[in-house]
Design a protein around this nucleic acid. Structure first.
Length: 456
RNA sequence: GGCGCGGUAGCCAAGUGGUAAGGCCGAGCUCUGCAAAAGCUCUAUGCGCCGGUUCAAUUCCGGCCCGCGCCUCCA
């Protein structure tokens, strides 16, 4: 069965296939804004999209997929951060881009084939805006900004069904006074010295210097790197409106053709049953979780425990569950060796994944297959391919390197000596002390290991 | 106010008009000085509540209760 995926535009599950004659599947995935560390909610989307990327490669061939994911390195938030820190924009975005890459690597996400930045595609964005102005889809406002003229695009709202909704009247956009209509959105924002610092570029013909609006970057980068029509455009649900709706308007008016054949949106991650926010104390970055003693691979597993199109309730307990499940997979894989057995784990896993990216069903299928088979009955190469599809690296470190305090090392050494001398009462007392101090001592025949307890 | 989603065992979570995947936890056992790891076994007569349709509903329809998300900052 080919890959089937829900299409947010048609609201139906549809098969995925490259439309271009060259057979290359064109995949654009909205990336992060690099002004702060990404949180695990962001990573849910990126991990889900990574599984999608892997499935596409397995289905069409690694050389027949072009995956583009942008980095938003100029917008209100990044500029706001430069003002807050009094540091150059490039310095801030570089720092958080590097961190994002490190986190993605730790989560075993494949790098996109291209990772364009908004600042690297100013010219392309300006070009598109000029075309839109020439075609009458955009206009210059009094302050030198450029806005998209919503009424010029009758198809607006198809993705989000915005016309069927009644918007809260309180949400009047701040700079509405410059627009012909409150719903028109910015393609180009005129430079404001008090807010923008030194961040500005020459604008489209007839407009002021300034910077691109947020939405135009994806349209321009997608066009430059993948062409006028792409096979799949994805992102988090929150981008569905207005971001993706606006992208469609810009791209289709500029290019005069369909922008994307398929739209996919992954749902939000909830933490402890509610939206993650710093004030609720349930806001986690990857680093936060690693510092609590969890492995990035367990985070990846936990992020795949729920259906990508349903909100997933993330709990710290999920991470413990993921850690244990992964340990089972490691042990099973290790016992498998180079087995060329008949059991095809990949088939059942990929069938679930091809069915609208049902990752929890895939994990269920994985364990069902494992529970019904001996390691030696399973085909190792196919098992590994299933791991590839899910992106589980079973060889990744399971726990971060932690410095063992000298006092703990000493206690452990004492207990080991007592055990060697068969002084078990002393050994047990020392084990209790270690446990009380938050450490587990794991004995083997000839050696021992120390592991810190996980933090709540 | 509008749009939408969900309520399945202690926790997380698939799924189906024909009688409940899976993971974790827990319990028992094997192994082991102890602990851990590993292995084996067990763990929802039940799928928010009330009606309806049906030979049959957790699955379809209606009503109700509860929770959550979104409505131009947002993965």
């Amino acid at each position: 069965m080919p890959i089937h995926l829900f299409d947010s535009l048609e609201r139906a599950i549809k098969p995925l296939a490259p439309a271009h004659p060259d057979g290359v599947f064109r995949f654009y995935n909205c990336g992060p804004t690099v002004y702060a560390p990404a949180h695990i909610g962001n990573f849910r989307t990126f991990v889900v999209n990574d599984v999608l990327r892997r499935l596409l490669e397995l289905e069409f061939g690694a050389d027949k997929v072009k995956h583009v994911r942008n980095l938003t390195d100029v917008d209100d938030r990044t500029i706001g951060q430069t003002q807050k820190e009094k540091r150059p924009l490039a310095e801030i975005t570089k720092k958080w881009t590097d961190k994002f890459h490190a986190d993605c690597d730790a989560l075993n996400c494949l790098r996109p084939h291209a990772e364009p930045t908004a600042t690297g595609y100013i010219k392309e964005q300006v070009n598109m805006i000029e075309v839109l102005m020439e075609k009458g889809n955009a206009y210059r406002a009094a302050d030198g900004s450029v806005y998209f003229k919503l009424e010029s695009f009758p198809g607006y709202g198809a993705l989000s069904r915005i016309k069927e909704r009644e918007l809260k009247i309180t949400n009047i956009v701040a700079d509405a006074d410059h627009k012909d209509s409150v719903s028109d959105f910015a393609l180009w924002k005129a430079y404001k010295p008090e807010e923008d610092g030194d961040v500005k570029w020459p604008g489209p013909r007839g407009a002021s210097a300034g910077r691109p609006g947020w939405h135009i970057e994806c349209s321009a980068m997608s066009k430059s790197l993948l062409g006028d029509t792409i096979d799949l455009h994805s992102g988090g649900v929150d981008l569905l409106f207005p971001h993706h709706e606006n992208e469609i308007a810009q791209s289709e008016c500029c290019n005069g053709t369909t922008f994307a054949h398929h739209w996919y949106h992954s749902e939000h991650l909830l933490v402890e049953g509610t939206t993650m926010s710093k004030s609720k104390g349930n806001y986690y970055t990857l680093t936060d979780l690693v510092e609590k003693g969890y492995s990035p691979m367990a985070v990846r597993y936990a992020l795949l425990m729920g259906h990508p199109r349903k909100q997933l309730n993330f709990m710290l307990d999920s991470l413990r569950a993921a850690e244990s499940a992964l340990a089972t997979l490691r042990a099973f894989r290790s016992a498998m060796g180079d087995s060329t057995g008949m059991v095809n784990v990949y088939a059942s896993v990929v069938a679930a994944l091809h069915d609208d990216l049902n990752t929890p069903a895939a994990l269920g299928a994985l364990f069902t297959a494992i529970n019904q088979s001996k390691p030696s009955d399973v085909n190792a190469a196919l098992f590994d391919r299933a791991m590839f599809a899910l992106g589980f690296d079973l060889t990744a470190p399971t726990a971060p390197k932690v410095e063992v305090p000298a006092a703990i090392t000493a206690l452990a050494a004492q207990r080991w000596a007592a055990k060697q001398a068969k002084d078990f009462p002393t050994a047990d007392t020392l084990r209790k002390e270690l446990t009380a101090a938050g450490w587990s001592m794991l004995d083997s025949k000839t050696d021992y290991k120390l592991e810190p307890h996980k933090k709540a």
